[in-house]
């Protein structure tokens, strides 16, 4: 079985948070690559210009929030697994995330939660590729 490497988009206005996710990614999927964006517009530009397989989005960002961005990404790339990461775990937000077909991961991001998501994402991508 070939090991697929995927490219992960990490969007967060906090450098620290991006670094934390990066660290987690390195731990969980060292082969995969990563691109970063600090806001929704940057993220969309990146997605347009280069291939992105999986997206991890912070919710509370200046400008458009992560949920909006997630909805856009889901429209543009219906097969791309998207996760919204936030400490803002209000039930409405969680529900909305699920409605648009994205996953919700609470902040601070715990490795097990991320691991679970990445595994599911890889599986999904593999099945779609066939």
């Amino acid at each position: 079985m070939a090991v697929m490497t995927y490219r992960v988009l990490v969007v967060d206005d906090s450098k620290l948070a991006r670094m934390a996710v990066a660290k987690a990614l390195r731990t969980l999927q060292p082969e995969w690559t990563r691109v970063e964006a600090t806001n929704a517009d940057e993220a969309l530009a990146l997605v347009r210009d280069s291939a992105v397989d999986i997206a991890l989005l912070d919710f509370n960002m200046p400008g458009r929030d992560g949920l909006d961005l997630a909805a856009d990404l889901r429209k543009l790339h219906p097969t791309m697994p998207v996760a919204v990461i936030s400490a803002n775990t209000q039930v409405e937000i969680v529900n909305r995330t699920r409605e648009i077909g994205a996953s919700f991961l609470p902040k601070p991001l715990a490795d097990p939660a991320l691991k679970e998501f990445l595994a599911a994402a890889a599986l999904h991508l593999a099945s779609v590729a066939r």
């Binding site: 906090s14 450098k15 919710f59 509370n60 936030s86 400490a87 775990t89 409405e92």
Partner: peptide
């Protein structure tokens, strides 16, 4: 810069939590 960034992130998380509780 980084300490401030970290502090900001912490505040973010804290305020998010507060919002959740308030909700």
């Amino acid at each position: 810069e980084f300490e401030l960034d970290a502090l900001t992130e912490l505040v973010n998380l804290g305020v998010s939590r507060a919002a959740t509780n308030l909700r």
